[in-house]
Simulated scan of single mutants.
Amino acid sequence: MLEPYYQQQENIITITREQGSAFAKQVADDFNPLHDVDAKKFCVPGDLLFSLVLDHYGLSENMEFSFVGMVDETSELVFPAEAEQFEVTSKEKVMLSVSRSGSNSKCSTLIDSLTRNYVEFSGTTFPHIIIPIMGEQQVMINPARPMVIYESMAIHMDNLDVKEVTLEAGQHEFSYDGKRGKINLRFNLLSEGQKVGYGEKHMLVSGIREYCQETVDDLIDYYNNRKSTLKA
């Protein structure tokens, strides 16, 4: 599933702007301008790094991911030998920190279904989840410079003896102090209707301002128009 979105020479993985942008739009349904091919500060989607880790190391019962550095087309990613704790680096700089424990599954069917469902959920959190959850507290992101940073995520599996999983949204949380805030997006993992795991995605928000419905409507219209244009 991931082969079109990276290349590997010996132990070095690289991702072009075109590949990162294609993954964001074709797999994650994520139209963040940071993932555009011509973005001034292009950034490889964190969900692609998450997907590559699962593909490389399998799915463990407990996994935590911390996105430390910004990966772009110049990054030369080194995936180290399997361990309970490891770091994906580029030119000796840490880009992603991973910790894991418990049993491990390398079932490609399970990993593919988890990857597709999580990435789709993660990629569509803006604007469908983030804007409403901030609006409940009468604040919003700065539409001129919407800074939402993918900080970390965690997954726990109660049962790895399943073939496929689906994802359902859980209870989300948003808190802020001044112009900075934190978003905690929770989800459950289901197999044949039964809960087999759960997870969280943590995001940082800056440039928070007072809520304005007209501005929010304009922002959502802009996002939807951009999405329909780029998908055409």
Results as ranks from 00 to 15, higher is better:
V196I: 12
K179Y: 08
F79A: 00
V98F: 03
S152C: 08
E73P: 02
E200T: 04
D30E: 08
N32W: 06
D47Q: 02
T89S: 10
M134R: 06
G193M: 11
V119K: 01
T89F: 02
V68G: 05
F86T: 11
N142C: 12
V162D: 01
L114V: 03
S75M: 00
F121T: 07
N32D: 07
I130V: 12
I155M: 12
S105L: 10
P45A: 06
E200Y: 08
E192M: 12
R145Y: 09
R209L: 15
L160M: 11
F50G: 02
R145A: 10
F42T: 03
K227T: 09
K40G: 13
S21H: 05
S206P: 06
E61H: 09
S175R: 12
D29C: 09
S206Y: 09
H156P: 00
K227I: 08
L189A: 01
D38V: 12
I131H: 00
D177Q: 15
V53H: 01
T166L: 01
T115C: 07
Y223E: 01
E18V: 07
T14H: 07
A28C: 07
D221G: 09
N184T: 15
G207S: 10
V68L: 09
P33F: 08
V37K: 15
M134K: 08
G135S: 07
S101Q: 12
G197M: 05
G193C: 12
N11V: 08
S60V: 09
R116W: 07
F121N: 04
R226K: 15
E87Y: 09
L54C: 10
Q19T: 07
N159G: 07
I111R: 11
Q8P: 02
T16S: 15
I208R: 05
E214T: 04
F79Y: 12
R145M: 14
S66K: 11
L110A: 03
V162E: 07
A154Q: 15
S51P: 01
E87R: 05
L59P: 01
A169G: 14
F23Q: 00
K195Q: 15
L49H: 06
Q194L: 13
D36I: 02
L34M: 10
E64T: 14
T229L: 15
K195Y: 05
L49A: 03
M95D: 01
Q137P: 03
T109F: 00
M63V: 10
M147I: 14
I12S: 06
M157I: 11
R186C: 10
K106I: 05
V94P: 07
R116E: 11
S191E: 07
D47V: 03
Q26F: 06
K179D: 10
G123F: 03
A144E: 13
D36P: 06
Q26L: 14
L49I: 10
A144M: 12
P45Y: 04
L160K: 04
E200C: 04
V139G: 01
G46V: 03
P45M: 09
E173M: 12
L190K: 13
V216D: 05
M95L: 07
I133Y: 06
V44S: 02
R17Q: 15
P146A: 08
E18K: 15
L110P: 00
S99W: 02
H172A: 11
L167T: 05
V88Q: 00
L34S: 04
D161N: 15
I183D: 01
